[in-house]
Design a protein around this nucleic acid. Structure first.
Length: 423
RNA sequence: GGAGAAAUGGCAGAGUGGUCGAAUGCGGCAGUCUUGAAAACUGUUGAGGGUCACACCUCCGGGGGUUCGAAUCCCUCUUUCUCCGCCA
């Protein structure tokens, strides 16, 4: 959620930056300012009314104490009208506040100056590419064929026990997945991220604070009996660990990593692009989350990107980095880099990580602040990234490492797997 | 799931209708003393709205109510603790 003060100070700047998302926000922002003014005017009136009745109440108290009950009763009558005003103004204030809030919820984050304009993924900007794309045999298979051939992932079994998009990993497939999780966590903790294990269900307040609610209910599984949501990403519980906190400046940076399953309804997805591991309702992911001083957050973002580069380099997977354009940028993000692994057998790039700086957008909803050197509360910056998402990394490994003799295991994973080939 | 008790500032903990945004202690910060530190002493120390700055307003788990006036009384929800039940 954008800060009202920011809109008051830099409306035109914000409005033109939002154009990169293809959003004409001018009118909405004007409406925000109007509502804000109304809200403040109402607040001022209410405060004055309350001040007066506070004063009267004190006088009444003193009169009663000194036995002047009659005078007190005269004053009491005066409070009747004040009470009515208080009620009316209080209702008006509440209405203005929630209207304002509702409007602010609809305005996405302001794109960073580096964000290219554009409407679709075609306008994303490739900023880096590394690794060699292997030359495979003519009979090279996509990962869903490999999964069947070597009996390491069973999609039909998942359908039987749950439904489409809930695969069952078997034998060496399960072990490889566990190896990847352990390897990612080890890399992240070695880089200074504290490993956390968090709940996989969150309440409504958490969903609101990181921006999954109120608009994206459809993406999350909702357990209505207990009114909790299955997490779509570890970002939600991990970032919410710091909800309502006021940090000291010297606590920065806060760096967490967590492995969790992620649950996404993915309503409306279909077709070849969702085959196999490409898009699932349940998948595993290791996430990194940072909370930073505003002046350091972009340096931190670069650091996260570099960190993920190292991992992909070690896995020897060909990958590229995209800077997302305004149209492809997530609602809450100011700047996002996507990592994509090239899947040779499918002949396409697969997104495996998304690294974002949310600046104060999430922090504003989270009420995640810090005390600056003057002792004033300021919003912190939040960032997160996948490090990494499992299924497509797995798909990339299976496809790129396939040989006539079986699937080779990347060297760094062999100690975690306990075998070097899947046959 | 059943019965009972509780929820107050960073922490501990007083406060059961008015002058309480809240005693006191600890912790934090600043100062005095000291070569320096400790101890001692003095001062200061919650969040949000509002204002150029004050004033002023709101917040004692959340929501609602009674009252001229609520941390304090009532209703409700949530959470924690104790006992019972169930159980990895």
């Amino acid at each position: 959620m954008l800060q009202i003060q920011a809109i008051r100070d830099r409306k035109d700047e914000i409005s033109s930056a939002l154009k990169k998302r293809g959003i004409a926000a001018e009118e909405m922002l004007n409406q925000v300012l109007q509502l804000d003014e109304k809200r403040r005017a109402t607040q001022t009136q209410l405060d004055a009314t309350l001040a007066e009745s506070n004063k009267l109440s004190k006088e009444i108290g003193m009169l009663f104490k000194s036995g002047k009950g009659q005078e007190a009763n005269v004053l009491k009558e005066k409070t009747v009208k004040l009470k009515e005003d208080t009620k009316r103004l209080g209702d008006a204030l509440q209405m203005a506040t929630s209207e304002l809030q509702g409007l602010l919820y609809q305005i996405p984050n302001v794109p960073h100056e580096k964000v290219p304009a554009g409407n679709s993924e075609d306008d994303n900007e490739e900023v880096f590419q590394e690794g060699t794309i292997p030359t495979l045999n003519e009979d090279a298979l996509p990962h869903w064929e490999l999964a069947k051939k070597y009996d390491i992932i069973d999609f039909e079994l998942g359908v039987k026990i749950t439904g489409a998009g809930f695969p069952v990993y078997k034998g060496k497939g399960a072990r490889l997945q566990r190896a990847l999780i352990a390897y990612f966590l080890d890399k992240n903790t070695a880089a200074g991220y504290t490993e956390m294990q968090v709940p996989h269900l969150v309440n409504e307040a958490s969903g609101l604070a990181t921006g999954q609610l109120p608009d994206k209910e459809g993406q999350m599984y909702h357990v209505t009996a207990d009114d909790v949501y299955l997490i779509p990403t570890a970002e939600v519980p991990v970032t919410n660990l710091l909800r309502d906190d006021i940090l000291n400046e010297n606590e920065f940076p806060i760096c967490y990593t967590a492995y969790t399953p992620c649950f996404r309804r993915e309503a409306g997805s279909y077709g070849a692009h969702v085959r196999g591991l490409n898009r699932l309702h349940q998948f595993d992911k290791v996430e990194i989350v940072r909370v930073e001083h505003p002046k350091n957050s972009y340096q931190a973002l670069d650091g996260m990107v570099d960190h993920i580069k190292v991992i992909l380099r070690e896995l020897k997977l060909p990958y590229r980095i995209l800077r997302l354009c305004g149209g492809d940028l997530g609602f809450t993000s100011a700047l996002t880099y996507d990592f994509e692994v090239f899947s040779t057998a499918q002949d396409r790039w697969l997104e495996i990580s998304s690294v974002s700086n949310f600046e104060t957008y999430q922090a504003n909803r989270l009420k995640l602040r810090f005390k600056d050197e003057r002792g004033k509360s300021q919003l912190a910056h939040t960032l997160n990234g996948s490090s990494l998402a499992l299924p497509r990394v797995l798909a990339g490994i299976l496809e790129n490492y396939q040989t006539p003799d079986g699937i080779k295991i990347p060297e760094v994973l062999v100690p975690y797997c306990g075998f070097d080939t899947i046959t």
